[in-house]
Nucleic acid binder design. Structure first.
Lengths: 143, 143
DNA sequence: CTCAATGCAAACTATTTGCATTCGA
DNA sequence: TCGAATGCAAATAGTTTGCATTGAG
């Protein structure tokens, strides 16, 4: 079941409606390099669909997060970001504090250690956030 | 050199001034269980020092972060938090999404793995953020 | 037809800033 | 004395909401 199907299923189950705007936003979102903030996606969409509203984009992204096809990220720059989520490919992020470049990484050992830590404290993990901030290859050369 | 000394040194070096408010805020901050948001610390201080302003508390906490005796945290609830920092005791956090409880943890192996990942991508890490969100012992019993 | 979705503007929240006044060195 | 610090109020930025209108089922 792909993300479009998941979203349609979610819409049907909740008695929501499948509008043009939602489909437009969903396509743009899935086709993206991801890590879009509401503002990013809104300005991109605005070029081709001048009638689409900021609030709609925002509400739709929240919906995506709610039904599980997106995850909300926060890189500490005061803007929420959303990333399309493939259920079986979790990853974390390296964020360049100079140019904004985002690199994804996976490290199963870290995941395992996290679980151990949670278990030690009788904690039931729902989600986690793990980001490494610094200078990317190019930016550390420049300075 | 303790945190007060570090701050005094910082103030002197930058030609700043050592006011009553700053000392009051510094004491309250260091004596705290930490993880204060500006609002938290402001309301706490307000009881004994009604004349102290929100902006002053906020500017002072930023100063602490700048001189390295505090670190700014963000647990995704829309409020910045500050934690007194002992240079040699880095730790990360477990955050209960139900009751707000915060538990600190250290895991040297994770730190090591992080460095490896950064090295693989020619990334120069400045800081990182690692938080596990979920239900604490008590809250998972209740539900 | 009915109720959810939309677009707009206004409300909100945390944070930051401008400025006249106070105060430390 | 003089510039940094303060307190207040106002500005900002991102997000969220109220509401009249539109549109999907």
């Amino acid at each position: 079941m792909d993300q479009i199907a998941i979203f349609n299923e979610f819409v049907r189950r909740k008695g929501l409606k499948n509008t043009n705007q939602r489909m437009t936003i969903l396509e743009a979102f899935l086709g993206s390099k991801s890590h879009y903030s509401t503002e990013d996606l809104y300005s991109k969409l605005r070029k081709e669909h001048p009638k689409i509203g900021y609030a709609t984009v925002h509400r739709t992204l929240k919906l995506f997060a709610e039904c599980g096809i997106a995850i909300e990220l926060d890189f500490g720059d005061g803007q929420a970001r959303f990333e399309p989520l493939n259920v079986d490919q979790h990853h974390d992020h390296l964020v360049c504090t100079n140019c904004g470049l985002i690199i994804e990484f996976t490290e199963p050992q870290i995941e395992k250690l996290q679980e151990q830590i949670a278990a030690q404290h009788n904690f039931k993990i729902e989600k986690h956030r793990h980001e490494l901030y610094g200078l990317c290859c190019d930016c550390s050369k420049q300075s």
